[in-house]
Design a protein around this nucleic acid. Structure first.
Lengths: 406, 406
DNA sequence: AATACTTTCTAAAATATTTTACAAAGCAGA
DNA sequence: TCTGCTTTGTAAAATATTTTAGAAAGTATT
């Protein structure tokens, strides 16, 4: 049995298949939970030590797992700690944003190989075919630079803004049919590709690596050019029947009547997106710190420098966002709400009014249970999430049990 | 090994425990999926026919399972169909409503033993201790009438309106601490008791037995004296971090400014509850069909008899509910929304305006994916759901794998 | 430092499960 | 009605896993 036997499902007769599944299971736990000792694996898999031992022997012989030596004792003999061999396989992550195109290679310990490569995005300024070719070229360059052969990359995860369904069909950007974006990119990149909404990738990343690590019910709101919402419910990513859940930016907020680009009226996005904030800042003539053109970042920097009109603008935005979050609290009763995106740089200046609105509009017993946190993943949450999303999809499709998020 | 060995977890050494778990698994599948053939069980459990065969032999000897004889052929030898012995165990269901107290006994095929017993409810008119004793007395009477010994009842599920957390602690009705309602009722009823919110019980019932049978993502809205929401997401009941998710009645709807009994302003419940509808009907002097006092049922009957003011009132309620549902659609992207409660009797007169508002306020791709249906379980959804909730909790606590909803 | 206790780990024996091989029972077309 | 094909079902052989028993390597206590 070689490495790819552990990856590819089916074709094997029952017993070998079963053994393979068990081994995938172990690999999966190591991928998701990090390094583990034999007894820990026994508890996780409901198998006994001799069985686990034999599996590990095989997995080590196949180059999947390495023995890290003794760990710390829990009152007795110190256990050997086993770990995935970080370079046994790689996952490619691509985050196609409106401003930047990010490309990164991840190892089996979720770590970035080298660094995250950031390129200008053509998403909003070029034809779809050009965007695709640009992505393929950038990936090509990145892999060439890193000197990693394509054959060692198992799968690619791509995150995109806009409406995307469960199957990865796109309805806002890069809309292709027959073959869809997934197949086209797969052909260009010469590997299996999975497409996901960026808000979902962000939620997954926050839950796995960010401030929401290990929290069961988390709502991740990102405020950039659009308002996004990704949801972890009962520790699993929730995407809705169609994959389009989390359209938080287009729920109706009371007291708003501005028409939204979506065609409806009074959407949260008409006050809480960077575009809307910039527009409002211009109307109120908020002074930018260095006299440069108005941007969300500029508004935040101005507010940090005690520019009252900027502080008040952020407060008003925060109050509306908080009112929206209050509705979310009643519906989802989450353990945590994570605020992400460019707005994070505002710190207190946004969280305080948000929290205040939550207190005003949500029931005590529900708001009291919920923590409000700022993301600490910088702008890289989405691309960090793509690796987990891609592994999850690969699992569903091939039975590889790396899956954490499906 | 006897019947209760299959129920009670722990205490047994590894192998026996494992065998027990496998058998529980089979029982669980039979409970959830109904009758199954050996090959079907093989596919479901990933075990081979000889193994399944031995388990079934044991389960039949223990009185859990019966052989129903040959089923229909799928192009070859006809398989034996196996079924749970319906009276191998019973589950007690209690629905403590504001108007009625319902008690029913369920067998392992989810069927009501005899009938559902309906008594007047003391929930809103008596001291909490009196309510408890009343419940215990009614259960006593019911069981005596049915002639079923307590020892054959495995567990009781109780549904209640109001805020209830994951552990079954109550915060609106029958609030007890140390011991809580669960323990007190358990002592009175002399069996394990689990407490759940009625909206959640309804959602579970709709998903298992009602119009939402087998649908993966369902929002069940009930409109009675309060507005309730129970959610099935990815085929599992979602209750939130604290158990209090689904407070749909208290999200804010635009254009409303009536103070709500919850202390906030503009809640959906201020227009869409039976109380609010009755109040509005009085204000508009909607004529009741037989000149009786104003009730929601009266309003609906009037509307059915072409009383224009009643039709318009229902339309306005429907529009507000539909606006709320539009927000739910954006957030949850469900496959189906089920409307339940007293309002069901209004039929078209409520679904048409609701659907219209959904069309007005929700994105096409999301609303188009979602079906709107009226509940067909009558008023019995909650009590039908209690049996599944109770079995689910019992599973979590004792390892009994009857669980469908946890 | 020695003893008692805990945890980890591994061979060999005991026990389960899967595979294999084949029989039985039904369908479908000639 | 007969033949070939499919599905179901069951012993016996082959293969896995679990248990048992005991060793090894720690910690905590005396």
């Amino acid at each position: 049995m070689n490495v790819s036997d552990v990856i590819t499902k089916g074709g094997l007769p029952g017993l070998k298949e079963k053994r393979c599944t068990q081994k995938r299971n172990i690999v999966s736990f190591l991928y998701r939970q990090g390094d583990l000792s034999k007894p820990e694996m026994c508890r996780l898999t409901n198998m006994t030590a001799p069985t686990i031992g034999r599996m590990l022997e095989e997995l080590m012989a196949e180059g999947w797992v390495i023995d890290l030596g003794c760990g710390t004792s829990g009152g007795g003999k110190r256990p050997h700690i086993f770990s995935l061999k970080r370079d046994a396989a790689f996952v490619l992550g691509v985050d196609v944003g409106r401003e930047y195109l990010k490309v990164a290679l991840f190892d089996l310990k979720h770590e970035v190989v080298g660094r995250i490569f950031v390129y200008p995005s053509k998403l909003e300024v070029a034809e779809r075919d050009d965007v695709l070719n640009d992505i393929a070229g950038r990936v090509e360059d990145t892999l060439a630079f890193l000197g990693v052969e394509r054959s060692r990359i198992r799968v690619a995860g791509v995150s995109l803004p806009g409406l995307i369904d469960r199957e990865g069909n796109t309805y806002t950007y890069l809309t292709y049919e027959n073959p869809g974006l997934k197949e086209r990119l797969g052909q260009l990149l010469e590997m299996p590709v999975f497409i996901d909404n960026d808000s979902n990738a962000i939620a997954v990343a926050e839950h796995a690596f960010g401030v929401a690590k290990g929290i069961n019910n988390v709502l991740c709101i990102s405020i950039n050019e659009c308002v996004g919402l990704g949801m972890i419910l009962d520790s699993r990513l929730y995407v809705g029947g169609n994959g389009m859940a989390g359209e938080f930016g287009h729920i109706r907020i009371s007291g708003l009547d501005t028409p939204c680009q979506c065609g409806k009226v009074g959407c949260l996005e008409t006050v809480a997106s960077s575009r809307a904030i910039v527009k409002a800042a211009k109307e109120r003539m908020v002074k930018m710190p260095d006299g440069e053109s108005v941007t969300l970042e500029g508004v935040i920097r101005a507010a940090r420098k005690d520019e009252l009109s900027a502080i008040e603008l952020l407060q008003q935005v925060g109050e509306k966002v908080g009112e929206g979050i209050a509705s979310l609290l009643h519906l989802f009763n989450p353990d945590m709400v994570v605020l992400g995106g460019e707005i994070v740089k505002a710190g207190d200046l946004i969280t305080v009014p948000v929290r205040q609105a939550m207190n005003k509009y949500a029931l005590a017993r529900i708001r009291g249970h919920c923590e409000l946190r700022l993301s600490d993943l910088g702008g890289d949450a989405a691309i960090l999430g793509t690796q987990l999303m891609a592994m999850g999809h690969l699992h569903q499709k091939t039975g590889m049990t790396f899956a954490l998020y499906e």
